[in-house]
Design a protein around this nucleic acid. Structure first.
Length: 291
DNA sequence: AATATTTGACCGAA
DNA sequence: TTCGGTCAAATATT
């Protein structure tokens, strides 16, 4: 049955509606960015998202958001239970709570990283299946980044991409385009469409569906029960206006106590440095439309 | 041949 | 128990 907030159907439905509204607002945010509107517009947009998130977390009292913090980056720590497992197939290790979580609405699945799909699952609260990706370099370089991709319940041309963990890999093929994969502010997304050298997709979205065929094929079985009620923790950004500068939200590494990974310490900051630096140089970001 | 995806089973948490 | 996340064999793609 409805796992979270069960036993309270109206609330569940309300939450679902709020989540839909939030997704729609998030999409609007993308458009706002593309339109390069002023700060005030984006601020207003952020407020809308914030209201949605707050309402959702209020209603969903069973699962209070880690509020007060930037909801777009929920850092939680739970010890992973290592079960002997041994021999048997199947996931004997359920994913321990990620050190960071960011939800990003996007039209394309390309974010400059290389992902390997490792699963797909129909989920109760959505009519579309959820796909699970891990970084291609998980074993290569012990990169712990994963992401979940799900088509938006409201607008199937949009995806809600949930990033968990951080990239500790340094794949040369992705360096020049690493550029803020999850954008800033958690719910806004930058659409970079400039990488002639790389064959990675990046679709301007000509037709109805995004062309993200390079590494993933969401086929959308497109039939499932009419999941009216969603129950996801929705992450959103807080008005943390750092410096109106583009920033790569790799961080928030503050404290995971649980993931091993020996060498991830400084890599991210190095990359950030490199990226921000070269980006400003190459692309000359003057996005005043950004916060 | 190597590499990536699909898909059902397994597992832990709620 | 159900639900969602992961594994890994089978299959597809390169």
């Amino acid at each position: 049955m409805t796992s979270r907030s069960q036993g309270n159907p109206p609330t569940v439905v309300a939450i679902g509606e709020l989540i839909k509204g939030r997704e729609a607002a998030a999409r609007l945010g993308v458009l706002l960015q593309e339109a390069t509107l002023g700060n005030s517009a984006i601020e207003a947009f952020n407020e809308v998202l914030d209201s949605f998130s707050r309402s959702i977390s209020l209603l969903d009292s069973d699962k209070p958001l880690e509020a007060d913090q930037d909801p777009a980056i929920i850092g939680v720590s739970r010890k992973r239970k290592i079960s002997p497992g041994g021999g048997k197939k199947g996931g004997n290790r359920r994913r321990s709570r990620p050190t960071s979580l960011r939800m990003v609405p996007s039209k394309t699945l390309d974010d400059g990283y290389t992902w390997r799909k490792y699963g797909q699952k129909e989920i109760q609260s959505s009519k579309f299946p959820r796909s699970y990706f891990r970084c291609t370099h998980k074993f290569d370089q012990n990169c712990q980044a994963i992401r979940q991709v799900q088509r938006s319940a409201d607008d199937e041309s949009m995806f809600i991409i949930t990033y968990m963990g951080e990239h500790t890999c340094r794949d040369p093929s992705m360096l020049p385009q690493i550029i803020s994969p999850s954008s800033l502010k958690g719910s806004c997304l930058i659409s970079f469409r400039s990488n002639p050298t790389d064959n990675r997709q990046e679709a301007p979205l000509p037709s109805s569906f995004p062309s993200y065929m390079q590494e993933c094929h969401e086929d959308v079985p497109s039939n499932l029960s009419p999941g009216t009620s969603l129950s996801e923790y929705v992450a959103r950004s807080a008005p943390s206006n750092e410096g109106s500068k583009l920033m790569i939200p790799l961080g928030s590494t503050s404290d995971h106590g649980d993931v091993d990974s020996g060498f991830q310490s400084s890599t991210s900051s190095i990359d950030m440095d490199f990226v921000t630096d070269s980006l400003e140089d190459i692309f000359s970001f003057d996005h005043d439309g950004f916060l």
